[in-house]
Every structure is written in structure tokens, then in C-alpha cells.
């Protein structure tokens, strides 16, 4: 039996559709989800282009260094335009500023922010929006075998996880983590902090609210970090990356209670 989560081809339609559904279901998150839907539609184009151009990653080099390619860079102006038009005020303002910059400056921005911990959060948004689909495509294409891998960082690109997923396994829910960069999903065992490897169950509370029956905050009292998990054993219709965004109030609750997310999602939540 294979322990590695098989990579299924990313399904952008599903994400876009789910964002629309959830926007109706969770009005508070409607603005965020609406904007996410626009970005996802943009990302789909890059993914499709990467596939059409039959791009490949060099397995000997870190994936993160191989993302800034014409298929992504060439669509950066479109992203800037989209954000300027549809984005929230802060991002729209940043887009306006970016529009003034040169393609070389854009390239520099992307390269700088394609690595984890890029400092400027707004720039990081632009970089992730543009490079995530490229990373996702290259990861999918690479067919890296990670069966049996159960570490805390992405087995394909080495980035941090952004959310966790529970999938049915017998009577229980088997956990996997989703990479914040290339969206690879890999097995990660339950009752274990993906940030600091705490295993003491007493220090790993799970917080949930009736508003989001299938999303919960998986926190760690030791490092005060958390991820949200989307439980597909409770709701099989959920699309993890989207449902995670819709449950934004849990992030705000966690923040108020002193927990910091291991890695923010694309919407900065």
C-alpha cells in the first residue's frame, strides 16, 4: 500500500467553483473568496501554459529556483492589471505602483519572493500568485516519488506546509499537509506539530466552531504555531485550499489567542 499521497492533476475549475459556492455560504468571507476566485482563474492560465509548453524542472536543483520562466513572467502584467482592477485597496495600490516598474524589476521581485520568507508581504502576494501555479505544474510534472515520506517540509520543493487535510482511512481521518508553494500534498501523521515536532497530545489542542464543522485549528502550545485542517471525512465536498480560506474567522480567532500560522495562505490569512 502506498503511503505517499498520489499527485492528482490540480483542478482549477473545482477551486474556482468552490470559491463561488463558499462565498454564498459564508458572506463574511465573500470578498476574500471572490478575489481568490479571480486569482485562481489567472493562475489556471499559467498552469495551462506551462503544460502546453511542456516545461520540466531540473530534479537536481531546488524547485524554488526554477519558477521564474516566461510562461509566468509574461503574464505578470496581466496579474498586476487584474489586481489593480479587482483587488482589495491595499493590493490594488501596490499594483498601481508595480505597473510603473520595468520587466527587469518584476523579474527581480519574483526571484526575491520565490524563496520563503520574502519580507514584503504585498510583493510576496504577487510572487506567489504568479509562481504558485508554475510550481504546482512543475511539481506535478516531476512525479517525484515520496511514498513513505512523512517529514514536515514539502518533499518536492522543501517549502513549508500551508494547511492540513484529513482524508478517510478506515474509520479515521488520515492527515496530509499541503505545500504553501507547489501545493504538493504529503502524508503527515496526526498528533504531531509540523512546526516544532511536539508530540505531547496535551499541548496540541484542536479548536473548532460550529460555523465551520469541517475546518479546525490545529495548534501547538509549545511553539504557538498552527495550521488549519480541512476534514474530508466530515465534508467530502470541500476543496481544501478554498475551504481553508473561507474559514478565515478561525485565523482571526487564533491570532487573537496568540497563535501564529506556520505559513499564511495566498490571501494573507
Amino acid at each position: 500500500m502506498n503511503n505517499g499521497r498520489d499527485m492528482t492533476r490540480p483542478d482549477w475549475e473545482k477551486r474556482i467553483r468552490r470559491a463561488r459556492e463558499l462565498a454564498a455560504q459564508y458572506p463574511a468571507a465573500a470578498e476574500v473568496l471572490g478575489f481568490y476566485g479571480e486569482i485562481a482563474a489567472f493562475q489556471r492560465e499559467i498552469f495551462v501554459a506551462a503544460a502546453a509548453e511542456n516545461l520540466h524542472a531540473d530534479p537536481m536543483r531546488p524547485l524554488g529556483e526554477q519558477l521564474v520562466r516566461p510562461a509566468a513572467l509574461g503574464r505578470f502584467p496581466a496579474l498586476v492589471e487584474l489586481v489593480e482592477k479587482k483587488g482589495p485597496a491595499g493590493l490594488a495600490q501596490a499594483a498601481r505602483e508595480l505597473r510603473q516598474e520595468t520587466p527587469d524589476e518584476w523579474r527581480a521581485l519574483l526571484i526575491k519572493n520565490s524563496q520563503p520568507n520574502g519580507s514584503d508581504l504585498t510583493h510576496r502576494f504577487f510572487a506567489r500568485a504568479c509562481l504558485q501555479p508554475m510550481a504546482e505544474y512543475l511539481a506535478f510534472d516531476s512525479k517525484v516519488q515520496f511514498s513513505g515520506y512523512s517529514g514536515p517540509l514539502c518533499p518536492v520543493c522543501g517549502d513549508k506546509p500551508q494547511l492540513s487535510v484529513l482524508r478517510p482511512e478506515g474509520d479515521g481521518g488520515k492527515r496530509s499537509l499541503v505545500c504553501s508553494c507547489c501545493a504538493t500534498e504529503w502524508d503527515f501523521r496526526r498528533i504531531l506539530c509540523p512546526n516544532c515536532a511536539e508530540e505531547d497530545h496535551g499541548k496540541l489542542p484542536r479548536f473548532s466552531a460550529e460555523d465551520f464543522p469541517h475546518v479546525r485549528v490545529e495548534a501547538c502550545e509549545t511553539c504557538k504555531r498552527y495550521l488549519k485542517s480541512v476534514d474530508l471525512t466530515t465534508n467530502g465536498l470541500a476543496v481544501p485550499v478554498v475551504d481553508e480560506i473561507a474559514a478565515a474567522p478561525l485565523d482571526l480567532w487564533a491570532a487573537e489567542h496568540g497563535y501564529q500560522k506556520i505559513e499564511l495562505n495566498l490571501m494573507g490569512l
Binding site: 478506515g170 474530508l232 471525512t233 466530515t234 465534508n235 465536498l237
Partner: peptide, 13 residues
């Protein structure tokens, strides 16, 4: 359950 995208309870047991 099926409406929620899940398999029936007996299956998982």
C-alpha cells in the same frame, strides 16, 4: 453523507 461527498458509514467501518 453521500451528499457531503462522503462514502456511506458502513463502508468506512
Amino acid at each position: 453523507r453521500v451528499g457531503q461527498g462522503l462514502e456511506p458509514a458502513c463502508i468506512k467501518a
